[in-house]
Design a protein around this nucleic acid. Structure first.
Lengths: 219, 219, 219, 219
DNA sequence: GATGAATGAGCCTTCATTCAT
DNA sequence: AATGAATGAAGGCTCATTCAT
């Protein structure tokens, strides 16, 4: 777990700042940077608009801070795992951890998608600090390991991208699938199933024939 | 197919209308409904703002018309396939056709994602007229057919959703992956690979070992 | 009556022009010059907006022409009477004739009021060509004739103004009184009564006890 | 009387609001609701347009508030008089009080006329809350009292309407009569004369035969 | 530190007017 | 003579942002 004991008593100002960020995340996720109204964020945070401007110099910077606040835990996660062991097990655990984090902040996935679709100014930062390192490392690992048809080296980017689609996309497109299937993709059960689904896919791609006794029965 | 020979000479007005729709699709895809500036759309279409309002009563209705124009071909596609044969081959062909259509209109995927993320007013229409019927049918077919572990019935929604992620998401997230991998996901090669990847996944899920002679060679 | 036999066959263009003027009068009366929409006038006249601009160079000039068209008969009326006999009988007849004309074009009274209230550009023209000559002559005549208390010379402008209020105001304020009294001031009966009321006022102000046999029967 | 001592120090916001209302009354009176430019009102009030919209949600509602602000004193006046004594004296005093109020706010008469002519949305409210009660009561009183020819019951609405014409119309048509007679109807002298004129008319209509020595010779 | 009040800039929309057919 | 198509110039209204208290 992360250090929860350090920040013992948050200042009143820190609380206000946090409330604003929380409110902003929701509004940005729902309406996008352009559609978001500062007034609405301030109202949702329970503060005056002028107060909001004491904490953040502009709507754009607030938006950026919201994104930063969202990736930071993911970066921590990645670093944690990148120093740990590799292999299918580790991959599965990373996927699980990411899914858990995204489930805790469903708005973040939407923010990332909005940023990507609109080619926002924070996109390249996102690519550089998280998606880039993670996906490239995963692709390398995929290539180091893959052997059997039908998978081959050229598929690496697609495969790792697929996991982004299945994780972030799961939360970003949740409203669509809720409408289509009548049940909420963000519910614990669905998230758990989606996580399991991704783990299954990993195992399907890397049969791990060498390790007897493990992961029997899948194809 | 539908009459393509009747509308030989489009009216000047029809051309203008089409130009506006085309321009609007691009702007909406890049900035979302809220962020889109009518002025920018008009400029991109090469018409005066007032002209735009001769053809469309409001920005919102223009947006809706753009979405309608995007789904209609997909609906046609679905109907065409729903009356044809079923099976893995057909599924693969549908995936291919959809990918081809999405590749031809990369903006449309973005529009769908934006609509889903922002829970726009057209989302339920999208769910009702296309995603709903298609995905539910696909899920049923998946369940009719699946047998072997690790796949089971409860996975059906996730699996069909996965194909949405891999197709629409491929185009919607293109800017991110371009940044990450340094090459353009919308390029013909990548689209072809992604299509093949999805077909591979289908075959992996439905091994079809029993039916000799059927569905041969579709890879 | 006025020459109706001269304009035997009006040109098609003349008819169009007349239709536009007629429509414009209604729209201007209801919404004022500023509030009037050229499109609405054209629609009411059953012509294209561009057509309207063939007949009238601008909305303002159309407005002015409408006003001109409205005063011209009144000017004729005044000239007719100014060359005729004077006296109470004549005054009563003029009032009756004016009321009849205003009743036939209830919109015109409104236009005059709108022009006066907004101090429109045609107001001084109205004052110079009609209200001025008529009211000043009437005031002079009032002074020539009045004798008995409580009326005295200084009241002349007020008295003649009163007749403007009671005639033009009757039609201009018709919507208010319709609302208040539940019956339509523009109806024939009410107009007749109002005319009679004004005649009574005239007689009250100028008792004419000396002239036996005069002013008989006009009540 | 109402508490005039309570609101000792008006808020800054209250002052701004009042400034806007004052400015709006002038602009609306001159140009009508349709012709009025919000920008012009704001400029006249010395505030930014956005500020205006903090106080009033729309131009229409501002207009309505201006009208309300104008009638309220008249309603107070009416209530005051309706609980007092009746008779010619009282009628004369009411007329005088109304004239005084209208003279203090000459724009209000114009607003009423514009609303009546354009059959605005506030007209029926005006009719219900002020003109209706007042005129109907006056008409009843007229009928209760009148006896002698040439006045008879059916004239009641016309007679009370006449007083509206002579009071409100006096101010609404002021620009016209200024142009015609070369002197300003809104000047104190003219207003005083017009008030006296109306009082004379009242006395003419109700000779008050009981009081010997008064108003001899008219009828 | 927080807020009520205010504003410049800009956005969606409409309007009077023109042009090509 | 008439019209469908198009436009420059506002107009009403909102928004991100600032200032005085």
């Amino acid at each position: 777990m992360l250090e929860k004991t350090e920040k013992v008593i948050p200042t009143r100002a820190e609380l206000t700042r946090e409330r604003i960020l929380e409110a902003a995340e929701g509004v940005f996720a729902r309406t996008g940077l352009n559609g978001a109204r500062v007034r609405e964020i301030a109202d949702a945070a329970g503060v005056n608009v002028a107060t909001l401007y004491i904490y953040f110099p502009s709507k754009n910077e607030l938006h950026e801070t919201v994104l930063e606040r969202g990736v930071r835990p993911l970066i921590d996660l990645m670093e944690e795992f990148s120093s740990g062991p590799r292999g299918i097990e580790a991959a599965g655990q990373l996927v699980g951890a990411v899914m858990k984090h995204l489930a805790a902040r469903p708005n973040f996935s939407r923010l990332v998608y909005l940023e990507a679709i609109s080619e926002g100014s924070y996109l390249s930062q996102l690519a550089r600090t998280w998606f880039g390192p993670l996906l490239n490392r995963a692709a390398r690992e995929f290539n180091d390991r893959t052997v059997s048809a039908p998978w081959d080296e050229s598929l690496a980017p697609l495969v790792v991208a697929a996991f982004v689609h299945l994780s972030f996309g799961h939360f970003a497109l949740a409203p669509l699938f809720r409408e289509v299937f009548g049940s909420n993709p963000i519910s614990e059960e669905w998230v758990a199933q989606q996580t399991k689904f991704m783990a299954t896919l990993i195992r399907q791609m890397f049969p791990e024939p060498a390790e007897p006794g493990a992961d029997r029965g899948n194809d």
